[in-house]
Design a protein around this nucleic acid. Sequence first.
DNA 1: ACAATCTTTACAATCATTCTAAACTACTTG
DNA 2: CAAGTAGTTTAGAATGATTGTAAAGATTGT
Lengths: 141, 141
Amino acid sequence: MTANSATDLLREHNLRPTRQRMALAALLFDGTARHVTAESLHDQVKDMGITLSLATIYNTLHQFTNVGLLKEIKGIGDAKWFDTNIDQHHHFFDISNDHLIDIPASSITISHLPASPDGKVIDGVDVIVRLSDKSPDKSSG
Amino acid sequence: MTANSATDLLREHNLRPTRQRMALAALLFDGTARHVTAESLHDQVKDMGITLSLATIYNTLHQFTNVGLLKEIKGIGDAKWFDTNIDQHHHFFDISNDHLIDIPASSITISHLPASPDGKVIDGVDVIVRLSDKSPDKSSG
DNA sequence: ACAATCTTTACAATCATTCTAAACTACTTG
DNA sequence: CAAGTAGTTTAGAATGATTGTAAAGATTGT
């Protein structure tokens, strides 16, 4: 993502194109799906030689989420994760290295979901498929 | 659950039947499925006129989980939840009041799950169906 | 009862996150 | 471009959930 398109992107969403938001937008919206936590993003910008306060990272992640540029992923580990893939989808979560892999919503079929209780509507369905390392002792050795 | 059966239950799992663990076992294993956090359990025992330190609640929840008496529920709200239903199952999570409702695993059919990446095996599948209040303005009035 | 071991507890420490108020930056208008 | 205003960033304090620590207390086997 170029500096210009980052500017446009931010403006389209009524966010001032500040140095900080430009840097984060450049990192996040390069076309590849990214899964980040505030801490991991903080480390990534640090590696680029840019220093942003953690509070700004949190603020920006929330702002990007509010305007629909990011999606928060519920239920992964201890920290909050954000996803640049804003389509409805699910996740593999590799517990051995805290790595996330997207699963398109269309790749999973969920049927026979019970009816919601009276007065309630389904707000969303999150599926997390936990992965662990295949034990080398089993199944083929 | 009677005091005697709580004692037996604890002994069967190599846990000394202390006053604290007896109280918590009595509360938790009365036959109905319960969803608790450390804080909510702490409040419940307080209501019974018993005072236990929060640290003990945490310790006990973890011990009960380690011996298979409880199951930790991943991905709900900000706190860790524990479930007396140790069968494989899923959850409705009512975001308006942080209330959980079990969904038996057999009530949901998940098909076409993609293959796990090389070297990885599926450790478990968690489905959380988020519920919110039906808006009174929509759909029938 | 005694010693050995396991538990509980108060309190400090930690981790992720949010709050606060002051310093700073971007945008608009002249 | 200068000034004013509104939006942003930041360091550091505060919060909330959880874990660690070390000392005091309870349970068990003999």
